[in-house]
Amino acid sequence: MLCERCGKNEATVRYSEIINGKKRSYSLCADCAGELGIGTAVPTDIFGAGSLFSGFFGDIFDHPKAVAASNVVRCPVCGATLSDIAAEGKVGCSECYRTFRAELSPTIRRIHGGVTYKGSQPAKDAPEAGGTAGKPVSELDALRAELYEAIKKEDFERAAELRDRIKALEA
């Protein structure tokens, strides 16, 4: 079969990953596998993590409404059409996600595993206002540093004690 990424070369590398319990497998050619750092150790930007396909909006047109809308509806802010987004693999602005919500959602579900957002809200619960991660994890940082020191000194009794405290905090 042909490489799922470039669609040009014979696929020789089978790659799978499991995100949120969903397994995805890709067949890639050696060039693309190399470019993506699969089976190799080529450093890439960490923001590239997971962006296996630059054009992963390719399945956008599985959605029947999408085909009709692809070149007609434009994002009111940036002017992008669904075809533009599919071709680039990226949106034109934040409003695109709202304009094309129904059409984009199958793809987003596929990438992220159909889950909804959990996390901080802009500014409101930023750390200065008593934030999300701040304190409990900082305490963990300190305990872990201690644990590391204990392991280095082979003080396993102390290490076990620290591990318990870390576990209790993480629970």
Partner: peptide
């Protein structure tokens, strides 16, 4: 990911370990 790597060997034995999932999990988690 290997850093400073050429091909399959990361010459400096330095690796970057990062999260891949960003939706459905909080920052703290």
């Amino acid at each position: 990911r290997g850093m400073y790597g050429e091909g399959s060997d990361a010459a400096a034995c330095l690796y970057q370990i990062s999260n891949q999932v960003t939706l459905g999990i909080t920052e703290e988690e």
